[in-house]
């Protein structure tokens, strides 16, 4: 479904990604882990072109999104993204946060968008918050709204960029539970995370990045029990 072929990304002199290739299949859940500065987030952000790779190709469903002629807006509408700091629109109610893009970008009718939005809010357990502004929500609630906001667009792929890193510890679970539900429903997901137990439990594959290179690409059982590289061993010793 997603084919990443030899992508590099440089910011000025700094080469953050040094040639990464991998594939993510339909319905697959991939956890991207590694030390900070290893390029995890940059790799994720390349998939919806928030960062444009310096070289290399990304192909989604047969379409080369890295082609300069590709319709970026169209591509992004099919890829949901959840950020570390939620980035809900503060001047819109929760319901409007959800309906804005489907109505204004996809041309969905307002009634249909609201119906869908309400379904999704109930799915993430926030039906009672439809009419409040984001500032009235806890971090965990904001992140669940952000997930719902992406889902109303009916994306084929969901990207998560450290979705629980900015949360108070007692709110991490509610967000991970929603993500787990999503994974169980067959959504294709790429998740940059520091939640090792979650990655081990939910992911089908672990991508371990270090210094802009893909060091390991393995099923979680192998990666966590028998890491192949010295670098991954060191990393796991420190985080567990």
């Amino acid at each position: 479904m997603i084919k990443i072929d030899q992508i590099t990304k440089s910011f000025g002199q700094l080469e953050v990604l040094k040639g990464i290739s991998t594939e993510i299949g339909k319905g697959e859940v991939v956890a991207i882990i590694g030390p900070s500065g290893s390029g995890k987030s940059t790799l994720l952000r390349c998939i919806n072109l928030l960062e444009v790779p310096t070289s290399g190709q990304i192909i989604i469903n047969g379409q080369a999104i890295t082609d300069p002629k590709a319709n970026v807006m169209q591509i992004r509408q099919q890829i949901g993204m959840v950020f570390q700091h939620f980035h809900l629109f503060p001047h819109m109610t929760v319901l409007n946060n959800l309906t804005y893009a489907p109505v204004k970008v996809k041309g969905m009718s307002k009634d249909e968008a609201e119906k869908k939005a309400k379904e999704l809010l109930s799915r993430v357990g926030l039906s009672d918050k439809a009419d409040v502004y984001p500032s009235r929500l806890s971090g965990g609630q904001k992140q669940r709204v952000a997930i719902a906001r992406s889902l109303v667009m009916e994306p084929q792929i969901m990207l998560f960029d450290e979705p629980t890193s900015a949360l108070d510890p007692e709110m991490v679970k509610e967000v991970l539970d929603v993500m787990k539900g999503l994974a169980d429903s067959g959504m294709t997901m790429a998740i940059v995370t520091h939640e090792m137990r979650f990655a081990e439990e939910v992911a089908d594959r672990i991508l371990f990045l270090d210094g802009g290179r893909l060091v390991e690409d393995a099923p979680p059982a192998d990666f966590f029990q028998r890491p192949a590289s010295e670098r991954a061993k060191q990393f796991l010793e420190k985080v567990r």
Binding site: L50, I75, R76, M81, F89, Y100, A101, S150
Partner: peptide
């Protein structure tokens, strides 16, 4: 906040 731009872009908002 730059995040607002990114969130809008990620949703495919022109």
């Amino acid at each position: 906040d730059k995040g607002q731009w990114e969130a809008a872009k990620a949703l495919g908002v022109p």
